[in-house]
């Protein structure tokens, strides 16, 4: 098994990057091993836990199930590239205040899913928040304070 590397061009957090990555690598592998983008976490590598969730062309996807080759020419966005995003900043602040961050391993994925929800539905019900976050497993919080944070952020943003 020789490691064959392939060169891909994509937009990462607003910047054009060229990256040499193992042929057939997942986006999660490329981000972490080749680009040292570490906010996307490997919690399961099976698409279940949501800790690796990133945006491709603005849509949340599992980095662990996405091939880097498929991202050729597309825009990938991770938590590292969220500076200046008002919705994300508000969500982050509410998460800090509500206690929705415990070990933090799920947090990046949770926030990316939550931001996607608020873009689609700025005033979600608590049920809608729980549904939108149901693909992000959190083993620490019991979800209550996370839902509080997302609802709090939604309320603040919609004022």
């Amino acid at each position: 098994m020789m490691v064959k590397k392939v060169l891909h061009s994509l937009t990462l957090n607003g910047e054009e990057v060229q990256v040499a990555t193992a042929a057939g690598a997942t986006l999660l592998q490329t981000l972490r091993e080749d680009l040292r983008i570490l906010s996307s976490k490997r919690g399961c590598n099976q698409g279940v836990c949501g800790a690796c969730t990133v945006l491709v062309d603005g849509t949340p996807v599992r980095a662990c199930l996405t091939l880097t080759a498929r991202c050729e020419g597309h825009a990938v966005q991770t938590m590292e590239g969220m500076d200046g995003d008002r919705v994300m900043a508000t969500l982050q602040r509410h998460m800090v205040q509500s206690g929705g961050v415990q070990c933090g391993f799920c947090t990046g994925g949770v926030l990316i899913s939550a931001r996607d929800l608020l873009e689609a539905d700025p005033t979600p019900s608590r049920e809608a928040v729980k549904t939108a976050l149901s693909g992000n497993i959190c083993r620490c919080t019991g979800y209550r304070t996370i839902v509080d944070a997302v609802c709090g952020a939604a309320e603040e943003l919609s004022q």
């Binding site: 949501g50 949340p60 996807v61 599992r62 996405t66 549904t131 939108a132 149901s134 693909g135």
Partner: peptide, 9 residues
């Protein structure tokens, strides 16, 4: 099916 993010894929 699954959840919102997997349904995007």
């Amino acid at each position: 099916i699954a959840n919102r993010v997997v349904r995007n894929m």
